[in-house]
Design a protein around this nucleic acid. Structure first.
Lengths: 218, 218, 218, 218
DNA sequence: CTGTAACCGAGACGGTACGTCGAGTCTTTCC
DNA sequence: GGAAAGACTCGACGTACCGTCTCGGTTACAG
């Protein structure tokens, strides 16, 4: 069995690509993911169906790229990297700020429908899932890893902690509430998550060191 | 507009119902959720399509009930309630044990495909999502709430902690890794989650807090 | 390889069949055969495409049956058999009359487009061709065979002539002019064909028998 | 509306033209006319699609020219005009000989598929039909006209006979049997046609005619 | 001898129709 | 009246070609 000859990407129509992205995002936003069809995207974009099938393998694939492109475009519009995590020296405050921003984004309908749709498709379609995770999710999680490592440097976080796991303590609960609608999302909620995660839910042990401040040992 | 006359449930064929459950679970396991069709379920169950549409509203609905029925049947077979959380007095040990059991279940292919499929459908189909959460997910989470409340009684957990949020610190990360394939799942991983969640990732620093605080347990 | 289970003809929708015949004939008449599509027939008939593909194998197949049905219906309307060849005892007059009627029919636009289309499809698609010939053409030609045989009985036609070939002398030229547009069609033309065919194009040989009339020997 | 600028025929690639003819004839022979596509011809000829559309208006147009070119080439190979009708003084013999040669050609698969395809297309596509008739069919029929006229000079054929009609008595039946598969084709068949056509199917009865008559040859 | 304008191979493009699949509805026949 | 069976309308699928439209590249004639 031979793969078909693979189209010549240098001749690709930029206009069509953009029109397809726009149509796909618009339709998903308007009628939802399951009722968005390849045929509908093509019609709305003023494009032949074949032009979609030539460059993408499925509806999910189109939407994934469209969403990535949207992300880049928003980033470019915003001027600088919007997803950086600040480092004011106060880890808790920084995390709360970022998570509050995330809450805002999750509740923004422009993002909500397509990203929920992609996440759903990714659960069931392994290929889409892997790409969704590696292109969208993991890069953002790595920002938390970096911030937590910095906090380990300043002693705000124990040195033997695995940051890749630690970040899940506050990121995953938010993700699950949003995706699976297991509970409401609010600033209070994310603030609480950060507190529980950072300080632990166990009562302070009476032992411990006297010391003050955020452990300014060099 | 009137709802259609509503079928008379007393005359329902129990045999058909079971055959439909079996067929649905078997097909989802064999060909995956998206390629499982109502027509296929009907054919495999030796049942008319109308019999399915008479009692369920969609493929997801069938699968949801089939999955619930499977759970009950397994429970009945196992003899006693399988999802209870032990209370040995050692919270950490109890949670680790339960999460290890959960890991086993998540990796059991008999459960994996249908529950992943249901979760995915639930993301996008709000009705299914609500039912999935309220009938399957939340009841299990409430077991954690109960156990955490008990731990608050013994002082293992601060009294001012919201148990419904606290449980997410170790449950959600596991759920996300499994659902979205963001990372590997193992006993080590869940043990680590419990440790981080229970003791916090920050070094124990009882100071640096105003005072006040609740948790005035006797 | 198995044929698909073959639909149950007893459950077939008579209404759909009629609507499909009507739509097919109308469309062929309006836009011509090549621009008549299965999709168009289905839409016009208010029928799903699948219903067409369930019962017919192709556009040509639909049209063939539609045309046959039209023929039957016209016949039923006309009351008695319309394609019988009269036998007044005067072979030449009878043939001229029938061929004049045929000319009328060939020039009737209601028949022209679909039958020309079917004939064309039959040239290239052997299956359609065989059915066209056996169901439509040959039965009519057999009427000529019968009439010629009767004429052999009365001595109007030599006894050693093969009627199946003889009829082609006047039928085929008309068919070719009509189908291939190799020349105009008129009463004069068909009358001439009959004369040439019946009396031969050679001059009368001076020899021969004295006799009179159309050989009324019993 | 202006016609497009009309390509410069002097710069036309002869190699491409030949390759297109070859590819078209080969494909029609191999997969039949309906499954021969412009795209396929271009690919097989190693030619851009536009090169075909620049010089021809349709698949049928290409095939028509390809077929004409094939005819010329065969003629050139054969040395002299192959379709001339001999004039030995014996009309019946001459016609039988020519028709036997025609039978051979009709049964030659090299010719059969493309010419049947062209004839079919011509039935439905009037433009192609006219060209097919005027460029291919009529020139050959005119050879019969000439031969019949000569026969009128020698008294073998009545002078008042229209040769253009007369030739159809033996040519059209053969054409119809071949095109529409209404019967087998053989030397016997064509010999019989000639006999019937030339001598008439009625017994020779010189009487029963008013008199007068033309054919007053000296 | 060199533009430059046409043809050329290639193939992406907007479209139309294909023939298939499955959804959800409707109808028939049996129990 | 529920159930098996399956034909029905409908809508989308992914594919095949249509005929048009760029893209370099390669002649071949004009300056």
């Amino acid at each position: 069995m031979v793969d078909k000859p693979a189209p010549d990407a240098t001749r690709r129509s930029e206009k069509s690509r953009r029109a397809i992205y726009d149509a796909a995002l618009a339709l998903v936003g308007e009628v939802g993911y399951p009722r968005t069809t390849v045929e509908g995207i093509a019609a709305r974009a003023g494009v032949g169906k074949q032009t979609i099938y030539r460059w993408w393998s499925s509806k999910a694939d189109v939407l994934l790229e469209a969403f990535l492109a949207l992300g880049e475009q928003v980033a470019r519009t915003a001027g600088q990297e919007p997803y950086a995590i600040p480092d004011t020296g106060d880890l808790a405050a920084d995390l709360k700020a970022v998570l509050r921003a995330t809450v805002d984004e999750l509740l923004d309908p422009r993002f909500e429908v397509p990203s929920r749709a992609l996440a759903a498709e990714g659960l069931v379609n392994e290929q889409v899932g892997r790409e969704f995770v590696s292109k969208l999710l993991e890069p953002q999680l790595q920002l938390y890893v970096a911030r937590l490592r910095a906090a380990q440097g300043t002693g705000e976080v124990r040195g033997d902690v695995d940051p890749r796991i630690a970040l899940e303590l506050f990121v995953s609960p938010l993700a699950q509430r949003w995706l699976q609608r297991t509970g409401p999302i609010s600033y209070d909620y994310t603030d609480t998550l950060v507190e529980y995660a950072l300080h632990g839910i166990a009562p302070r042990l009476p032992a411990a060191r006297p010391a003050a401040g955020p452990a300014r040992r060099v």
